[in-house]
Design a protein around this nucleic acid. Sequence first.
DNA 1: TGACAAGGTGACCAGGCGGTCATATAATAT
DNA 2: ATATTATATGACCGCCTGGTCACCTTGTCA
Lengths: 212, 212
Amino acid sequence: MPKETFFNLQADKRNLIISVAIYEFSKADYNTASINQICKKACIAKGSFYQYFADKLDLYVYVMTSAIEEKIKFFSSTITEFHNLTLLEQFRFLFKKGIEFAKKHPKYAALGEQFSKESDETAKSAVIKEGNKQSETLFMQMIHNAKAKGEIDNKVDTLALTLLLQSLNSAIYKYMQDKFESISYEHNEKDINAFVDSLLYIVFNGIKIKTD
Amino acid sequence: MPKETFFNLQADKRNLIISVAIYEFSKADYNTASINQICKKACIAKGSFYQYFADKLDLYVYVMTSAIEEKIKFFSSTITEFHNLTLLEQFRFLFKKGIEFAKKHPKYAALGEQFSKESDETAKSAVIKEGNKQSETLFMQMIHNAKAKGEIDNKVDTLALTLLLQSLNSAIYKYMQDKFESISYEHNEKDINAFVDSLLYIVFNGIKIKTD
DNA sequence: TGACAAGGTGACCAGGCGGTCATATAATAT
DNA sequence: ATATTATATGACCGCCTGGTCACCTTGTCA
């Protein structure tokens, strides 16, 4: 956690530091990201930085957990209608919400993507200890409920489906990044939605020729 | 490409350097991996290293492309029987071959996994330029053939399925890593095969309740 | 006005990095 | 025995890193 001094800062300055840090940590992994660069871009002295944060890890954990909290907040705000939906609708809803989040908060999304690649174990576990793993249990619970309701094939392995869905998340993100490189957002919205529906079609119907 | 001096080296020394480099580059990303450490562990002087390789990138590209070549060699040796198989059997074959490869050459597999996370664009594109993208086109061709043969549902989007299958690859790798952390290989072989089959069951049959 | 606290600063530290180079050694050819 | 070539070496370079600290500025009370 940042020191008290940091929270006593003017909001403008505080926000600048955080947004610079988000940029730095989404651009490069933990070891490569540089405190010196963050200080320079945020126009603060090195010494000031260490009056706000205990060390590099302190800032990293703070920024990452903020992004996670933001995402949870974003999702939970519209999840009330959730139990009325079928599983297909729930999945589509989640994926589309995910895309929406990435479009609304591209910096947080990039941060999350960078975190999922992070190979520094110290940095990784420091963030995870701070409270995570929600998405896995969320998927599992959804699947469990749908099975109980007789909505999906009992032969489907819950864990396998969970990992599959998590994989799809990053596949969608990669697809988005490719599409969004230099073209306008609006223009690609249809493409991405179609891509999500294609993935969901496979997951629900399988790829085998149907007999009916 | 390494300099001539490197290839004039005794095989033992050459292999030691390479295996140390493989270890270093599979443990950490391109920027974090250290030439100094490689020299120390391979018992060669810094100056010697730069008589073998032009720079860090030279070694990186050499090691990565070696791993890719090794994997291609491993696959192509047993792929003759391929056209007799159904698509399901082909996919199962590929995934199981992948697992086999990771078990036989865990260091190459770890290297590949690290590469897929690499965020240094210079390092990444230097390797890709050296010849890659085979797996994507392989999957696409397989799907295309299967569609022509009427083996899979035409409503399935080829690109979506390709990205899905690539995602599954890394999902399987993660599952393996979890399982293999401290227990014997043999003991988990059944688990992993079952996991692969669970994934393939979903991909082929979908998760929806069947009417037949 | 003076005292005390809180915040801001950048030179400085030790250590690591990728990369160089003059020099030393070994092996070969004349 | 000498000259020539190929290889081995580690001190050294400039640069960057995360982190420290003595000093300076600012603001708030008395």
